[in-house]
């Protein structure tokens, strides 16, 4: 069980981790632009219901609230894992990563159910431009979360087998950036899609 102080990082590797962090941050900025384009498209097409279901018909405040709670909690639990990481407590890291995974997986489960239900009642993405935009925007976010879940599993594996080495820790920090970024996108999603749709 090594503490952060035992994690000797030579200057060259420290530079490398800085570069990777900056590079990953730039990727997140490009991802933000992708979401910005999806949001702009949604706003342009939210009225294009083609005589079909409108936002009020397809959104549920309760489910949106539940999804929000799950994701927000998972961001917090990831933070707890990050604290455990900096203290070098391996089993705590594993525990809180696992909890984060469960919360994130529950989010995906709810969202999957939401999509499946809509498609079953004829409100799938092929119904109208509005629904195409909705499914793509929220679905792209869900896809990112799913990738994050796979990444959490990979990191659980790495922490388990390799311990809290410097490369593992640096990957965990980038995963944290990704996970928190996705929560920010979700804040914009409920503020632009769900809440205005139900007002």
């Amino acid at each position: 069980m090594s503490s952060i102080a035992d994690m000797t990082i030579n200057p060259r590797d420290a530079e490398r981790y800085e570069e990777k962090d900056f590079g990953f941050w730039l990727y997140l900025m490009s991802d933000a632009v992708i979401f910005a384009c999806l949001f702009a498209t949604y706003l342009v097409m939210v009225g294009n219901t083609a005589g079909g279901p409108t936002p009020k018909d397809v959104f549920s405040l309760d489910r949106a609230a539940a999804e929000t709670a799950l994701l927000l909690l998972s961001s917090t639990t990831f933070g707890v894992a990050a604290v455990a990481l900096s203290a070098g407590e391996r089993s705590k890291v594993l525990l809180w990563l696992a909890i984060t995974f469960l919360l994130g997986a529950s989010f995906i489960f709810l969202e999957f159910g939401e999509f499946r239900g809509l498609i079953a009642e004829g409100a799938g993405p092929e119904r109208s431009g509005f629904l195409s935009a909705f499914f793509t925007l929220v679905g792209t976010h869900g896809l990112h979360v799913s990738v994050g879940l796979v990444w959490i599993l990979v990191m659980i594996g790495q922490v388990f087998f390799k311990g809290l080495t410097a490369p593992v820790a640096s990957r965990l920090m980038r995963l944290g950036l990704f996970w928190h970024f996705l929560d920010i996108i979700w804040v914009v999603i409920f503020s632009v899609v769900y809440l205005p749709g139900l007002v």
């Binding site: 490009s30 498209t41 219901t49 083609a50 993405p125 092929e126 109208s128 195409s132 793509t136």
Partner: peptide, 30 residues
Amino acid sequence: IFAFPALTVACGMLILDRNFGFHFFTNGMG
């Protein structure tokens, strides 16, 4: 870094239209 995302979105949406019946850019259906 800041321009290519727009292309990704435009092409992605057209892919969805052509292969999965979405209506981003169709003539009608919104």
